[in-house]
Every structure is written in structure tokens, then in C-alpha cells.
Design a protein around this nucleic acid. Structure first.
Length: 568
DNA sequence: GCCGTTTTCGGCCCGACTGTTTTCAGTCG
């Protein structure tokens, strides 16, 4: 079956080819928006089409008549005629060339045609040999730089890794006495699960001097752009760093602009236009008078537009502007609301710390409880426990509990959901635990139908409280498995089972967009670290970020409550 | 191609930097 991801990729490709063709920008953007909308839809467009036809598809915001009928065509015939025709004139290789930073459609076409490129690997050697025949030396240098950037950095870094680079950069920039308000913005500030490049903003008494100072950072390999108040550098680790400096009087607008997301800013500026205002990083212009008002804070910017302040985590154009207009924004959960961790491993299975060490660390974090949830028998690689060893472990938990009267140790396990949906511990044993998490650990490539049934079978088992890392994805390593989330969410609500928001930095699973969708159904979540060491207990903040991006309030999260409260 | 406090046409966010542009195109965020 064609999944939403497949359709999103098709329309993304459509947009790229239209870009090469030189079609009007708004049409290209329309295709890109449709791809995004389809990707974010919790329901499969195939199902939507089967139920309500083209009209139902058009209800997806960003999908209109044209794109809906293309989806219909693809479902019926397995192809889109227009795309097939376009591909004849714009081969794959040209799209690949366009992915080079600083190369857009015009340059891509020129490279492809002038050098008669057949494989992407030919681009760099051919440009080096004869590039000067067709390009200005400076332009050629930019393209070759782009290829270097592309080679040295594939994909996006984890939020946890970005944090290390950001801290280093800010520490260095603070050495410049002219600079104030140094802040990391972009997807980093929005707490997105991965960060593509690092964006910084600042104010300065002497912005040229600050740009000079920025450009001298010894972790930079190259300076790509250097203007009076804006610069882009290539970091040794392969990603780029942007900085933009404006006066403190306009810092609120600068912060707002550079935090994004792009989609949020487009929506915000459209909102402003309808009210006779124009928003830029410098301020808000009243169109009638032509006067621009500046703002030192973001609150001022949103306030001028008649909006409540919108947290950066929410700025993804998911309805936050409308919510801010009607004072309906969620009161987002914070790290300090978390009362305990419901998923942690010990040496009994594949953890590196003893139960006592884990409990002592959890107590230091101020938690009321911690669940020790070791793996179960059939996960051999993780030394999963059978019934006998779980009972031995229970005796140890009781012993440790006496030493730590202030924190409740929850006797727990992470039971395996087998491919047929059954669990690998007997029901009576599971019933004796304080809390049980069920997770999928193998056979990840099942069909969507099988995986959906597998998850729902586990959810319907009365001993299950939480489904662990529900999609199984590992960021930058593997895709999550496919399931009919609509059905899974309904089953969770019906059976009072929570979905885990796994805070492990390369899992962050459930993903933020699925959290956002699940919350609409009334699903509850448990934010858990899945710690395998004492240090990893500190990863809770990353799970909280996912919850915030999914619009979660304190009441949506089990472990913002005391154990007695949610256990009953 | 999408969409509607400008609702079936006419607009679609806004600005900075680079190159060779002396008024603008290409690319980016």
C-alpha cells in the first residue's frame, strides 16, 4: 500500500521538478505544503480516499482539488501521468545536483547540461577541470564549497549533540565585550529532535567587530558569508553556523524571526497582513502610516499582533496562531512537573548500574518514585529475566526500598510484544508488578496491518500500563515501523493504556507530531528515560521537549502525578 | 496549486548577501 510517507516524497519530488522547470514559486510552495500536510496526517490518505473520495482528501489543509485528484490517479493507476512526463525532461541527477548548498535550479540545470553529467560523482571532478569555462571563479568556489559541506555532513545532529556545540559557541562569543543577548535560535530553540545547522542571534554595540570575533572561532573551518551584521561559517564537524546581529531595540523581532519555523513565520506574517501590518526581523510596520515599531522582546511582537506569547516549541504552524488569538494555547508541561521515571534498567538485565545506584540517583533528582523495568526472558541479548529471576530481583528491590524510605521503587518490567501480539511473561506474573511497559523489540518489518494488530493485542491485555517506544524508530538509523495510529490511539484510550514518550536522545519516541495527534484522541503519555545508566536519568528534559512540541499539559502526562493517583 | 475577515479571483512573508547587478537575479533562511 502506498503510505503517507510515499505520497509526501512523490509531491516533494514534484515540487523540486517544478522548481527546475522554473514554474511559478507559489505552485512549488503549494506542492511542498501538500507534501508536509500529508506527511503529518495521522490517517493514511489511502484510507481517507476509500472512505470519502476526492472530497474527503480536500479537507486536508494544503490539499486542494488538483493534488487530491493526483492522489486518486495514483491510487487507481499506480502513477501520476504529469510527473512521469516531467521526469522525462528533468532527470533524477539534476535533482541531486540541486541538493548542493548554494546550487538552485538555474545552476543545477547549467551544470547538468554543460558538463553532460551522468552520475553525481562526476560533478566535482568535472567542475574542478573545466568549471572556469562556465562559472565566475567566485561562483565556482561557492559550488565546490557546497559539495564539501554536503560530503562532510549528512543528515542532522541530535538535539543533545547540538547543545554541546551551542554551549561552546556562546561561551566564545561572550568573550566579545560588545555582544549582548547572545541566543541560539532556529530549530534548536524550538527543541526539535534534530538540528540541521546552528543559528545564533545577538545585539552588539559594534556589530562589525562582533562579526570579526565570530569569524575567528577556532572550531570553524571556513567562513562562507561575511556581511556587516550577518555571517555564515562552516564548523569543523561539517555543519554551518549562522549569526545575525541587530540592535537591542529590535532584538525581540530578531529573536522571533530567526527562531522560526519558516512555516510559523509565513502564517504569522499572513495574519499580520490581514490586520494591515507587515512583520520583519526589524519590527512591525503599520502599512497605513508606514511607520515601523521596534520591540525589545518577543512578547511585544506577539502582543502587537493581538496574540498571546507563543512558546518556541509550538511554532510549527499547527494552529498555534489561532490558539494564541483566542487565548486557547496549552499551558505546557515543564521538567519540574515530573515526579518520577517509569522506565529504567538495572544490572539485572542490560543496565550498567545496580538497583541501589539507580534509586539513589533518582532520589537526588527529587523524584517520588522510579520504576526498575528490566527486560524479559525472550530478549536474550539484553539478558532478559524469566519468572525465577524476577522473583529474586523482587527480594532485592524490597531490601533497597528499606534503605531509601523517601522514594518509592516500582517493581516493573519491559515485556516483549511478540510478532503475534502475545507477551513473553505469564499473565499472573505480570499482574504482580506495580507497573508494566510492553515494547516491540524485533520483527520490526511487519506489514502495517500486522503491526497494528500486534500493538492493539498488547494494549488490550489488562496487565499492560504503558507501550514503550511506540514507533521503534532510531533517529538517523532506522525508520519507525508503520501502524494505523488512528486505531492504536483509540485502543489506548479504551483500555486506559498510556503511550511512552521515550526520552533517549536518539529515540524520542513517540515522535512529537504523533504526540500532537494522539493528544486529540485523549491519549495519556508517560515520559521516561529508558535509562541504562545513572547518567541517562538526566535525559528526561529531552522527553519533556517532545511532549511540549506535542502541546502536552501537565494533566496529559502520567508521571506528573504521584504514583497512587495514576495507579488507581 | 491553494485559499477565503480580499470567499471563485487575485494574491500568495520578508529581507540579506553575492555576484558584476548599475536596478537585478539567484539563493538562502
Amino acid at each position: 500500500m502506498t503510505t503517507n510517507k510515499d505520497f509526501a516524497e512523490i509531491f516533494e519530488e514534484f515540487a523540486q521538478i517544478l522548481d527546475l522547470k522554473g514554474d511559478i514559486r507559489f505552485k512549488i510552495v503549494a506542492y511542498e505544503n501538500a507534501a508536509q500536510a500529508i506527511n503529518d496526517s495521522p490517517r493514511q490518505v489511502v484510507d481517507i480516499y476509500k472512505e470519502g473520495g476526492v472530497k474527503a482528501l480536500e479537507k486536508i489543509h494544503g490539499v486542494g482539488g488538483g493534488i487530491a485528484s493526483k492522489i486518486e490517479e495514483y491510487i487507481k493507476t499506480g502513477k501520476m501521468k504529469e510527473l512521469v512526463e516531467l521526469k522525462k525532461d528533468f532527470p533524477e541527477i539534476e535533482l541531486e545536483i540541486m541538493k548542493i548548498p548554494s546550487v538552485g535550479p538555474k545552476t543545477a540545470r547549467k551544470i547538468y547540461q554543460e558538463f553532460k553529467i551522468k552520475k553525481f560523482s562526476e560533478v566535482e571532478p568535472k567542475l574542478k577541470k573545466d568549471g572556469l569555462k562556465f562559472f565566475h571563479p567566485k561562483t565556482l568556489e561557492n559550488i565546490l564549497d557546497g559539495i564539501r559541506i554536503m560530503k562532510s555532513f549528512s543528515g542532522r545532529m541530535l538535539l543533545v549533540d547540538a547543545k554541546v556545540y551551542v554551549d561552546e559557541l556562546i561561551e566564545y562569543l561572550e568573550l566579545d565585550k560588545n555582544a549582548i543577548n547572545i541566543t541560539a535560535v532556529g530549530s534548536y530553540r524550538r527543541n526539535k529532535e534534530t538540528v540541521g545547522d546552528i543559528d545564533l542571534v545577538a545585539s552588539s554595540a559594534d556589530s562589525e567587530a562582533t562579526i570579526e570575533h565570530f569569524a575567528k572561532f577556532n572550531e570553524f573551518k571556513d567562513i562562507i558569508v561575511k556581511g556587516d551584521n550577518k555571517s555564515t561559517a562552516l564548523h569543523k564537524s561539517g555543519f554551518t553556523v549562522d549569526i545575525l546581529i541587530l540592535s537591542a531595540e529590535e532584538f525581540g523581532s530578531l529573536l522571533q524571526h530567526f527562531t522560526g519555523s519558516k512555516e510559523h513565520n509565513v502564517a504569522l506574517r499572513t495574519h499580520a497582513q490581514l490586520r494591515g501590518m507587515s512583520v520583519s526581523e526589524h519590527g512591525i510596520k503599520i502599512l497605513k502610516t508606514g511607520k515601523t515599531q521596534m520591540f525589545e522582546t518577543e512578547e511585544g511582537v506577539y502582543g502587537q499582533l493581538g496574540l498571546k506569547y507563543i512558546d518556541p516549541d509550538l511554532r510549527e504552524d499547527r494552529g498555534e496562531i489561532d490558539a494564541a488569538l483566542h487565548d486557547k494555547l496549552p499551558k505546557l508541561i515543564n521538567l519540574k512537573d515530573i515526579k518520577g521515571d517509569l522506565h529504567a534498567h538495572s544490572k539485572w538485565s542490560d543496565g550498567t548500574a545496580t538497583i541501589e545506584e539507580m534509586v539513589a540517583s533518582a532520589e537526588k533528582l527529587g523524584y517520588e518514585y522510579i520504576a526498575i523495568s528490566d527486560h524479559t526472558v525472550s530478549l536474550g541479548i539484553a539478558r532478559g529475566l524469566d519468572e525465577k529471576r524476577f522473583l529474586e530481583r523482587r527480594a532485592e528491590i524490597e531490601k533497597v526500598q528499606k534503605k531509601f524510605p523517601k522514594i518509592k521503587i516500582l517493581d516493573s518490567c519491559e515485556v516483549n510484544i511478540k510478532p503475534d501480539g502475545s507477551l513473553d511473561l505469564p499473565d499472573e506474573l505480570m499482574a504482580s508488578f506495580d507497573i508494566v511497559t510492553a515494547s516491540v523489540h524485533w520483527s520490526l518489518k511487519q506489514s502495517r496491518e500486522d503491526m497494528t494488530n500486534r500493538l492493539i493485542s498488547a494494549i488490550e491485555n489488562p496487565n499492560i500500563d504503558i507501550v514503550g517506544h511506540p514507533t521503534g524508530r532510531i533517529i538517523n538509523e532506522r525508520e519507525g515501523y508503520d501502524a494505523d495510529w488512528d486505531q492504536v490511539f483509540k485502543a489506548c484510550v479504551k483500555n486506559n493504556v498510556a503511550l511512552e514518550i521515550n526520552a533517549y536522545p536518539n529515540r524520542l519516541d513517540l515522535t512529537d507530531n504523533l504526540v500532537f495527534e494522539a493528544r486529540k484522541y485523549g491519549v495519556k503519555f508517560a515520559i521516561c528515560t529508558d535509562s541504562h545508566s545513572v547518567e541517562q536519568l538526566n535525559n528526561m528534559c529531552f522527553g519533556v521537549s517532545v511532549a511540549r512540541r506535542g502541546w502536552c499539559e501537565k494533566k496529559d502526562i502520567l508521571n506528573t502525578q504521584s504514583f497512587d493517583k495514576f495507579a488507581n
